[in-house]
Nucleic acid binder design. Structure first.
Lengths: 188, 188
DNA sequence: CGGCGCATGTAACAAGTTACATGATTTG
DNA sequence: CAAATCATGTAACTTGTTACATGCGCCG
């Protein structure tokens, strides 16, 4: 149940239309909670029906039918309650770790290229995050809001750092392995 | 599309019934890919229909109606192909990071207890993993299969290490914050 | 035989993904 | 006006979650 709260957070930061939200989910918020425009429109409908947000009357009625939403008091209350709510930590569920385990059973043929590709992508992501950090948080921020945003960004940086390190380790291990698996049944 | 491959991997390691699989998913494999018994039964049905696995005839026909499954050659081929397949890395999608961001907007009231709770849980998980490492991998393993399993375990250890470190940082930041948010509209 | 635990499921729902549909506005 | 783009939205499907149903053997 995180998507509605992601949207409430985004709308509190700045009232927006569906497409604007989608774009913001492709940027800052989407770095740790991604969503497609279909999900967002569906959820906006639900939130409006639940009385947590409302559509603003269009400022320029003639120019297109863009709908801007803003958060109602009930929505802010819901978000405040959610921040303090007890929820179990999300367990790890990563396909790449699973593939590594599968490679232990059927052999690592072809996995190396995929590991390299992932390593490049994570390195790029890490650079992007550190770039944002340098630009937006050159010093420890004073404002509570900025401190928490910085904390979230540092979380992203540390996660990407983990992946880069782990993938390098994985590559080193896979590189010095035989291509073919010593098969028990078929080839042995 | 990872659950079927998780099941194929588990069945190659050892043919099992649905419930046995469920239990193994609560242990080793579930550490990085969790699944409930309902998911597993549904997926076993699909895999059997697709000809990737088959049910073994019961060894002791009288004792209950447990169904043991084993992987067919087509299943092994599918898993081998999946290991080498190109797939995009999973983007970060974590509710706790999102809550931290929300706390930046509505204030961090009540979040501290939740952070503490998560910290304890991650510390416990980390201890569990390092315990497994000490018991199962006292030295760098020779076998390919063991090397890859160790790699996966190290991934889990490093991820939990990240969470412990990040949560301590987050707690330190939240502790020295004012309980009330300087509100723009309502309280200001 | 009645209740308990084991093992295999069904049903209903929620969340996320992929493909397509509709209308309106701008641009050539 | 045709084509491209913007903006909103439907539909169908897959994956994951929660609650319940069924049949069997064991134990008292």
């Amino acid at each position: 149940m995180s998507l509605p709260h992601a949207i409430l957070t985004a709308l509190l930061e700045k009232p927006s239309s569906g497409l604007e939200l989608t774009r913001r989910f492709d940027k800052s918020i989407g770095y740790f909670w991604s969503a497609t425009h279909q999900q967002i429109y569906r959820e906006l409908g639900k939130l409006e029906a639940a009385g947590l947000i409302r559509a603003l009357p269009p400022v320029q009625p003639t120019r297109g039918q863009k709908k801007e939403y803003e958060v109602l008091p009930a929505g802010r209350e819901e978000l405040t309650a959610w921040v303090a709510r007890t929820e179990e930590p999300k367990q790890i569920r990563d396909p790449l770790l699973l593939r590594m385990r599968a490679a232990g059973v059927v052999g690592p043929q072809g996995l190396e290229a995929e590991l390299r590709r992932h390593l490049d992508l994570h390195r790029a992501q890490l650079e992007k995050y550190t770039g944002i950090e340098e630009r937006h948080f050159p010093a420890v921020p004073d404002e509570v809001e900025d401190r928490l945003r910085h904390l979230v960004l540092r979380g992203g940086i540390q996660l990407e750092t983990f992946w880069v390190a782990w993938l390098m380790e994985a590559l080193a291990a896979v590189e010095q392995m035989p291509e073919q698996m010593p098969e028990q049944g078929a080839a042995g």
